[in-house]
Computed example of a mutant assay.
Amino acid sequence: MTSILPNDGSAGRVPIALADRLLDIRRIYHEPNIERFARAQQVLDRFPDAQRIEVPSHQAIPGLYGNEGNVEDWVRIKREVLVLGEKKSLSARRNERSSDWIAPSTANGCAMACSYCYVPRRKGYANPITVFTNIERITGYLDRHAARQGVKPAPNQCDPVDWVYDIGENSDCSVDAMVSDNVRDLVELFARIPNAKASFATKLVNPDLLGYDPRGGTRVRFSLMPAETSRVVDIRTAKVADRIAALDDFVEAGYEVHLNFSPVIVHEGWLTDWAELLEQIADGTNERTKRQLAAEVIFLTHNEGLHDVNLGWHPKGEELLWRPDLQQLKRSQSGQWNVRYKSPWKGRWVQELTDLIAVKLPTCRVRYAF
């Protein structure tokens, strides 16, 4: 087993090559008077050479959002652009699948470029990181919200004891932590809230998080898929082998560690690839990690609008993601038309994969699969 910790056992900084590959901030769009927030000043100080451009709102940036021509610069914008804004509307939304609640976002967008990501569908041809700088208001809201819930009355698929808050619905917290201390503040908050825990999925190994003190109050869900598929669709993410190598270290650092098998992409030979991945996880983790593992299994949902965007910057990924011979239209809860794998094939494939997990990784319970 390979550790991501230095030899002295202390947490390391994010490797320079990784940070440079993901972020080279040249422009920062910001709302008026954003410097009144200490968190905004921290980010501005972190990127002192970046051009600062004032905009009326983080949601309406002329030339960035809604500009179809930006598709050709998809990755460059993610690497070079940052947005600072204030999160004005705070609410925790019921979820009851991966988490009990979706917390108010402290960031939106991502420096990585997974070609199946749903967030760009809403942002319009560009998806850089937006940092919400009123972090004290957000953490205060969450503290009060958790207090109002009281003791969780009964176990559910989210957690047997704690109320679970997803803190990374629209971003990857491991990347966000490279830009500001918002994630550190959230981890510290949930370390001291007695009846709740934070949760986020990630495709990046950020060793800085090992220096936090989560005390079991944060669940990190490492997203995994077979390496060959990941190389095509998980653009600018950590290697699958590196994510597996990180599992033991994050458990040792005080995190609860789960697995996010998502999205499951069906292609010729897909189940054989998943068998190999599950064996890699079993061989690459110690018994302590295995005993606390749980997983969620989510098969691919795609969207014609995103398909059209992806054709402009990464058509190779669409050879895996866009399979009309295997997919059918289905309207989402939000009213959008998406494509999902055909029934009843999907039901059979879900059963085949969950059966495989039970054989190859028997200590890992499947929290839900669809």
Rank of each mutant, 00 (worst) to 15 (best):
M1L: 10
T2K: 15
N7M: 14
G9K: 01
V14L: 13
I16L: 15
A17F: 09
L18W: 12
L22Q: 02
D24N: 12
I25V: 15
Y29R: 00
H30D: 05
H30F: 09
E31N: 08
N33P: 03
F37I: 11
A38M: 04
A38W: 07
Q41R: 15
V43H: 00
D45A: 12
A50H: 02
A50I: 13
I53A: 00
P56D: 07
A60E: 14
G63W: 10
L64H: 00
N67A: 12
D73H: 13
R76L: 13
I77F: 07
K78I: 09
K78G: 06
E80T: 15
E80N: 08
L90V: 08
L90G: 00
A92S: 11
R93D: 14
S98M: 11
A103V: 07
S105E: 13
T106K: 01
N108F: 10
C110A: 02
A113D: 07
C114E: 02
C117Q: 08
Y118E: 11
V119T: 09
K123G: 05
A126E: 03
A126H: 00
N127F: 10
N127H: 11
I129K: 00
T130E: 05
T133Y: 06
E136D: 15
G140M: 05
G140Q: 06
L142D: 03
D143H: 11
D143P: 03
R144D: 14
H145G: 04
A146D: 06
Q149C: 12
K152G: 06
P153C: 06
P155Q: 12
D162R: 11
W163I: 11
V164K: 06
V164F: 01
G168N: 01
A177D: 10
M178Q: 04
S180T: 13
S180H: 07
N182I: 03
R184Y: 11
A191K: 04
R192S: 09
I193A: 07
I193L: 15
K197G: 05
F200T: 08
P214I: 11
T218I: 02
T218P: 01
T218L: 01
V220E: 00
F222V: 14
P226F: 01
T229F: 00
T229E: 02
T229W: 00
R236N: 10
T237N: 04
K239V: 12
A253T: 07
Y255K: 01
H258F: 06
F261L: 13
P263Y: 02
W274G: 02
E276N: 07
L278D: 02
I281K: 00
A282N: 06
D283Q: 13
G284Y: 03
G284A: 10
T285I: 13
E287C: 05
R288I: 15
A294C: 07
I298M: 03
F299H: 05
L300W: 05
W313H: 14
P315K: 13
P315T: 14
K316F: 09
G317L: 01
E318C: 08
L321V: 13
P324T: 07
P324G: 03
L326P: 07
L329C: 07
L329E: 15
K330P: 02
R331H: 08
Q333K: 15
G335P: 03
W337N: 11
K342S: 12
P344V: 08
R348M: 11
W349G: 10
W349K: 14
Q351T: 14
E352H: 10
L356A: 14
L361A: 01
C364H: 03
R365L: 06
R367H: 05
A369M: 00
